[in-house]
Design a protein around this nucleic acid. Sequence first.
DNA 1: ATAGGGTTAG
Length: 542
Amino acid sequence: MRGVPAKFNMKEALSLLIQECKSMRELKQIHSKIITTSPYMTHKDHHFLLSRLLFFCAFSRSGSLAYAVSLFRSFKDPNLFSYNTMIRSFSSIKERMVTSLSPFRLYKRMLASGIQPDNLTFPFLFKSCTIKHEPNTGKTIHTHVIKLGLDSDVFVCNTMIYMYSMCGLSDIALQVLNGMTQRNIVSWNSILIGYLRCGELDQALSMFCDMKERNTITWNSIITGLVQGGRPMESLKIFHEMQRSKDVEPDKVTIASVVSACSYLGALDQGRWVHGYLERQGLKADMVIQTALIDMYGKCGCLERAVEVFNEMPRKDVLAWTAMISAFADHGLTKNAFGLLGEMERQGTKPNHVTFVALLSACAHAVQVDSGRRCFDLMRRVYGIDPLVHHYACLVDLLGRAGLFEEAEELIKSMPMKPDEFVWGALLGSCRMHGNVELGEKIAGYLISLDPQNHAFYVVLSDIYAKAKQFEGVKRVRKLMCERGIQKTVPGCSLIEVDGQIHEFSVRGSAESVKEEIKWLLNILTIELKFAGYVPDINEEF
DNA sequence: ATAGGGTTAG
């Protein structure tokens, strides 16, 4: 410290130390140094160092948010930088917080103490609005942006656009977009993603076609959006178009979505191809891709490959475990599924509500009533997971399949929430299975009154009558459907992959090229099933 | 500083 003003030296040195800090231990040492040297510093410098320390604590990999919070709480008058740090820290948390640390409370406190927010404050406030789905809070903050003249900032505007479009307010999003003096690709992508998230897929597609500039995120967003929106076939088409386009290269995100598209389609060859493509591109499968691969191989009936990918994983989170569990469940391997539940617990991963949906549906498909009841209990008592409607639907499905109608109805009555159409639908399906006309009529009547335009419930009711040979009933349902103008708009269809080509086939007919091959395949399957001792339930077919 | 990925059910 010789020859240089101590004040200057101290601040610079400590600031450098913070930047290079590698652990919390080091950080605490620096913290105490800042405190002990504070008499030799100006207040401003002291505050500067503490706020840098806070920033490091909040965002560095070796930092600690808990320590950041305690640091922040020790500040008497946090500066703008510290407020921004805290708002950013909590902007990605979905739960509505009761503490003073919610971004909105921090923002209010900041305004109350006379500090003016800046262009770095707003993006994170809008992010918080997006995550919590609070467009009205967002609108209020939007007015502050205008008052402060920050409505020309690209970052601020883009996060506003994203918020509005994700909340389904694409009109306002477009207004913001049109008012911008300079837009960039993020502005357009934000609108596009909003459309996709709100299920306006055609709107998104038409915008995608009109876009002059498209980056990887644009392509990935549309591919993912189509898969999640239940149009995986189109997403594969866009993926192939992406490969042909010169200006972008598929990345890990693309691969994850495409693998996911393949599992929806049962497109094993395409899925395998993407798996190979990933390696050819020199990309390594990360946890997300591996999980998608497990799901894909599982859904395509290739359990061995699913297990292989699973065993190769160095790290597994709940989603990975759950994907493997449901692959076992889909293959009727209830024991393996439950075995994995124990294994995941031993390895320190807690199952979540999705894991239990997978387990319960495994029990339902295998009609293992005792396992199902025990599983439901286990979930509540041991894992402290409150059952959601989905879980009740699985259990109702199981009890119904087992013909335990009274218990199923009792369970529905005991539900803490309103049973939805899936819960009743599960029981209705069981009525069809067991020929329970009386209960079936009651449930179908109720479901039809809820959603008179949905053809599905009429069809099941008609099946129930047909199975009981009550053809008057069948006629009544058909007449009702005619009167109400209800048609089965989209015929049920299945997908089959032949030589890497995906074909749709349905009762209404299929492409000639694959028809013969499908017939041939079905014949073989029927013969093999007979050998295995399977007796088809032809009562269902009328 | 802002935008994109994986698990369940029907």
